[in-house]
Amino acid sequence: MADPMTPEPFRIERVSRELADTFTLDLVPVGDKRDFDFQPGQFNMLYHFGVGEVPISISGDAGTKGRVTHTVRAVGTVTESMADLKKGDMVGVRGPFGSTWPMELAEGHDVVIVTGGIGLAPLRPAIYHVLANRGKYGRVAILYGARTPSDILYREELEAWSARLDVSVEATVDTAGTDWTGNVGVVTKLLPRGNFDGRDAVALVCGPEVMMRFTVHALNDQGVTNDCIFVSMERNMKCAVGFCGHCQFGSRFVCKDGPVFRFDQIEDIFRVKGI
């Protein structure tokens, strides 16, 4: 990593509209940082000139060197102004930061990915990794929840993965019109029907905190123990290097001890209100 406190300039190579409020930026480095390298689960700090900086998980393929992909949801001042960025514009990048999904540890086991909403973005690099190294893993189940059918992120990719015989993909939405022939209901309901062995599975979970709370219970019900469940936490990450104090979660700095935590290691504070 170059200086962790100073953004490096990256040029936007492509902007893709994903959903009404969500877009994907493909970035290429223009400065000295040509060798950008990351692991699934990590995030970057994206700087929009003069507006500010936000932590955004990396959602591209770690196997593709020299490019970094971010899917951004416009929910704040900085991300909303980023929605106006176009091909050829520049953003600053600091990173990559944070802990990673346990891709090595999961080798030889079933992998169950439970995610909701924009939570699919930080898990996409893990999915790419599993698919690129398919032989190293047991059964693979991707369970995804969204608000409505038109809020399903990466829909084409989910359909492509779903078409593979060696991956089971189930999506569900909170409500749908009658043109939707898929599942309607909460994502936890997909677990009993997921094609995996809970006693030999590693679970990767990312979504709103409430969703993760219920998902952990539902995974336990399927026999997945807390030391095999990994969750990606969201807190207010500002400096990303453990200096600013904002992202503390109990004794952890989510920016450098997380965002990915093995659940049994945060279990004692996970359900404490306002921690």
């Binding site: 700087y47 000139f49 003069g50 507006v51 500010g52 900086e53 500002k238 400096c239 200096f243 600013c244 104090g245 904002h246």
Partner: peptide, 10 residues
């Protein structure tokens, strides 16, 4: 106490 924030200004 060491906590800080950043402000970006133009």
């Amino acid at each position: 106490c060491f906590c800080s924030t950043v402000e970006d200004v133009t």
